[in-house]
């Protein structure tokens, strides 16, 4: 019994002459207008950091060949028919997502934002109301700092995953889906932000396969 390791779903019909993990040749599993790009292994490939890079390389090669939806790392299935059934079941979702990412790539942006500026030394909060008002003001300034980076970049993107700072609101992290032709302009805008915004360090990586845009959750 072998295992199919899945890299991506595509609506392109061509046959990639590439190898996947551990040198196993890539195969297409047809599912209507869709196809899954997989490699076959005697047992599920062991997953570690090395394989993570190998996987990324394969997906990037595929991305340079066709419009694809990358799969979550480590997705393997036992049988091709299960994969075919899934493609039939989620056909609309996949076609829509493929249309969304066609001709575009994902760029990742991280930034370190300065602490919100406070004009006057904050008076000691005397009452609950005062404390809440101070906190609201603090949060408003933090949101402003985020928008300072996010807005000009979002303007260059087809869509974006809005910035989130789960632990520290000063750690800005966002993803942008950008037309291939617009990547250079996006990079320039990042440089401009770095040059123009005091105390803000913006870094950008990519182009990535559209990992963050396979589902409709972006703005």
């Amino acid at each position: 019994m072998s295992v199919l390791y899945v890299y991506a779903i595509t609506d392109s019909s061509a046959e990639p002459q590439l190898v996947g993990l551990h040198g196993a040749p890539l195969q297409r599993i047809e599912g209507g207008e869709l196809a899954a790009l997989v490699s076959e292994h005697p047992v599920a490939p062991e997953l570690d950091e090395e394989v993570l890079w190998e996987h990324e390389q394969v997906v990037e090669e595929l991305m340079s060949l066709a419009t694809i939806l990358p799969l979550r790392f480590g997705s393997s299935v036992e049988r091709a028919d299960a994969l075919i059934a899934m493609m039939a079941e989620r056909r609309e979702e996949f076609l829509e997502a493929l249309d969304r990412v066609r001709g575009a790539v994902e760029l990742s942006v991280r930034a370190e934002l300065p602490p919100p500026r406070v004009e006057d030394p904050p008076p000691r909060a005397r009452s609950g109301t005062e404390y809440l008002m101070q906190r609201a003001e603090h949060e408003r300034r933090e949101r402003e700092a985020v928008e300072l980076v996010h807005r000009p970049l979002a303007a260059l993107a087809k869509c974006s995953i809005p910035p989130v700072g789960p632990h520290d609101p000063r750690q800005f992290k966002a993803a942008y889906l950008v037309e291939e032709a617009g990547v250079e302009a996006f990079g320039s805008r990042v440089s401009e932000l770095n040059a123009g915004l005091e105390d803000v360090r913006v870094s950008c990586t990519g182009p990535w396969p559209p990992y963050s845009f396979v589902a409709e959750r972006s703005a």
């Binding site: 899945v6 779903i9 993570l52 890079w53 979550r72 997705s75 990535w208």
Partner: peptide, 13 residues
């Protein structure tokens, strides 16, 4: 960025 994408993004079966 790699880890964020490969292990938290992408199509989930």
């Amino acid at each position: 960025d790699l880890v964020d994408r490969l292990l938290a993004g992408g199509v989930v079966i």
